[in-house]
Nucleic acid binder design. Structure first.
Length: 383
RNA sequence: GGGUAGGUGCCCGAGUGGCUAAAGGGAGCAGACUGUAAAUCUGCCGUCUAACGACUACGAUGGUUCGAAUCCGUCCCUGCCCA
């Protein structure tokens, strides 16, 4: 099948006992089987991995970050390269985040105003102003398939007043995002450019009343998918699950739901159980660079002495390129010797692990045995 | 042979009378990491002890001193320079 010009989401199967669902999300750069885990490549690279290695993880879609790409190398260059797919020579679906997360993660380096956010470049102190309109322009120039609304991700903890303010601003900004996005899309469509899908983002921190209100406002916008943001900012696991449980059912059922910034193997299962279709997280790649790897039986640290002469693969149940070719002892040695390839091998494994976990989850849903599968995964993860 | 600079904990290296079990690195051991300012950060790291604490330590040895890695004597060893 050739590339489609638009987006569509097909719900293939719903779990009878939980909110879990399996679907197929079509984008101009190809189909995505949901539930799905999306690796993060902030700077238009999944850290330590080549394009071939990303593909070898089984990734069907990857992220990049528009704020970081705007700073470096600048969106003009990526536009001249023919868009981010050509820039990276990665021709599967892509998604860019808006810079909204940087409102949270770079809290000490920015000032929020009604019109937008003023950031200080951590590298050189240069000031950059990002508004909903500018974020849309940047993300259109970069050209990912899915682009995200410019939101205000509130911290945790966060008092109700603050959370409400951030949420309402996110809603006002959303209106401006859609307006800008639609205007840009008109001229681009006329020029024959591929369509981009703008996903709005639910905020409201950890207050039920705000989350419900936000879910309703966000759902009132016509979109190809809907995201839940503002979780995994330091809150306890139960709070995240509670928010997802509360919010997911309030989002349009016939569209993909994306839980932003999540997460661990158990987080993914718990998200799927509550009706989430898409996840992204830096955890598999960051942990990989720091020596931690996922296994069927929980996280392990490859640098540890216990693996010094362990000639078995990272996970006996894994068929990723790393596990097919290398032993724990060898990878431990690479870390001990500060060889970057250790990070590469663990990144491939960790990403593959989460993608494969979602693949198996999808099969379990399609075969009507999600609950048993989920229980088994969680038990094995030791939680 | 003469001159000169040195010998500090696993390694490198600060420290020139008490605040020194001894700065700071590295190595080692363990942990954290959730829309990436992160190949980063944190803890431990002489011996014994769960801990309080005790003991042993700055080349060796003998002194001075209430007190020495730090001052003095002798010896051993190392780098560099001159013969």
């Amino acid at each position: 099948m050739g590339a489609q010009q638009t987006f569509s989401f097909q719900l293939l199967k719903k779990c009878g006992a939980t909110k879990a669902r399996a679907g197929l999300f079509s984008t101009p750069h190809g189909d995505i089987e949901t539930p799905i885990f999306m690796p993060v490549g902030t700077n238009s690279v999944v850290k330590t991995l080549t394009k071939e290695q990303i593909e070898a993880t089984g990734a069907q879609i990857i992220l990049a970050n528009s704020y970081h790409l705007y700073l470096k190398p600048g969106t003009e260059l990526i536009k001249r390269a023919g868009g981010v797919h050509n820039w990276m020579n990665f021709h599967k679906p892509m998604l860019t985040d808006s810079g909204g997360f940087q409102v949270f993660s770079l809290a000490d380096l920015r000032k929020i105003k009604e019109d937008g956010v003023k950031f200080s470049d951590p590298k050189n102190g240069n000031k950059h102003f990002i508004s909903p309109e500018i974020s849309m322009q940047i993300q259109h120039d970069i050209g990912a398939d899915i682009i995200m609304a410019f939101d205000e991700c509130a911290p945790y903890p966060c008092d109700w007043e603050h959370a409400k303010g951030a949420m309402e601003r996110t809603h006002r900004w959303l209106e401006r995002c859609f307006k800008a996005h639609n205007e840009l899309s008109v001229t681009e469509r006329a020029a024959g450019r591929l369509e981009q899908a703008l996903f709005p983002i639910v905020q409201g921190a950890f207050y039920d009343d705000l989350r419900v209100e936000s879910a309703k406002v966000i759902s009132s916008f016509e979109a190809h998918g809907y995201a839940i943001g503002g979780v995994s900012v330091g809150e306890p696991l139960e709070m995240k699950n509670h928010v997802v449980e509360l919010v997911a059912p309030l989002l349009p059922e016939n569209k993909p739901r994306y839980l932003m910034g999540v997460g661990t193997p158990v987080d993914l299962i718990e998200g799927v159980r509550r009706g989430i279709d898409m996840f992204d997280c830096v955890l598999p790649t960051r942990n990989a660079r720091h020596g931690t790897f996922f296994t069927t039986y929980g996280n392990k640290i490859v640098k540890n002495k216990e693996f010094e002469d362990d000639f078995s693969p990272l996970d006996e149940n894994c068929d990723c390129p790393t596990c097919k070719n290398h032993t724990k002892a060898y990878i431990r040695h690479l870390f001990k010797a500060s060889e970057v390839t250790g990070a590469t091998l663990l990144s491939i494994h960790n990403i593959h692990f989460l993608i494969n976990l979602m693949k198996q989850t999808r099969v379990a849903i399609l075969e009507g045995r999600f609950e048993e599968f989920a229980a088994e995964v969680i038990k094995n993860q030791g939680l």
